[in-house]
Design a protein around this nucleic acid. Structure first.
Lengths: 147, 147
DNA sequence: GTATATGCAAAGCATTTGCATTAAA
DNA sequence: TTTAATGCAAATGCTTTGCATATAC
């Protein structure tokens, strides 16, 4: 599989230091990050990068189809560099962490024509929702230390 | 099936004119409305109802488990009074309209244990995404009249 | 050299909240 | 009468935008 950064070069995308760093941050990760998290990690590599640029860059990547925007539950959007394999997710309802999964039986899922209401179908999103181990533990002990 | 309004009465929920109207608006609808849409329709019945109250009321209904909050794609949250039957949806990617559906094969969907990452699973959301007939038509004729 | 991306700070939406007023029980 | 809900307007959090400056090509 061709790396994200190379695909971007192929697209004749103007390769700035900021964009390079955002691509790098996304590529290295398997958890799906919020814009703020991307900014935090990008800053380690390029301290002067602004949050606005991170947002702009992520939106462009989404528009190009190189990154998928995921909005499940409340909280900020998350970004998923995996657009090739089926995009099904496992999300923590508490902290929002998002993982890619490949559930069994997804291919057999179908919407009967009489329920399609004339829609032109594009896509199916499947999100398994649950509590991740860390949050589950914290949810049981109400607070670290309520003074 | 007991009506929403009656279930609320059973819960000893303080029944104000505003809450009654919100419940009424939700019950009558099969499309899932945004808070603003609920406000618009509620105002027809009770002009002085405020948007803040609509939000507060919707949140309480969600906390009670009488209404489901749906966030798919961008755009504002939508509210779904159908909590009994499986909550799978068909959504227009352009206008956000949301319908309940019951896809085939949903019961066979499963996440293998080796992909659960220790999560305590609670729920699965399935959203079919596509273009509704009205939006599809409009998307083909770029704009009504780009002067 | 020229077009385009950046950073900043201000604006924009959807949603929540504080507080005085009003109404349900 | 008491307790809780309402409406308003201000605050919040995430995201977008306008504009002058900097940078890739």
């Amino acid at each position: 599989m061709i790396e994200l950064i190379d695909r971007l070069r192929q697209r004749e995308w103007r390769l700035t230091a900021q964009r390079r760093v955002v691509a790098q941050v996304l590529t290295g990760e398997h958890v799906h990050l919020t814009a703020e998290a991307v900014h935090g990690r990008a800053r380690v590599l390029l301290p002067e990068i602004s949050l606005a640029t991170v947002y702009n860059t992520l939106n462009e990547l989404v528009a190009m189809g190189e990154v998928r925007e995921v909005q499940a539950g409340d909280g900020p959007r998350r970004y998923d560099p995996n657009v090739t394999s089926p995009h099904q997710h496992l999300q923590c309802v508490r902290c929002g962490t998002l993982w890619d999964v490949e559930p069994a039986g997804a291919d057999d899922l179908a919407l009967p024509v009489d329920q399609q209401r004339g829609f032109r179908l594009l896509d199916v999103d499947i999100v398994f929702r649950g509590m991740c181990p860390a949050c589950d533990r914290q949810a049981r002990q109400p607070a670290t230390n309520p003074a």
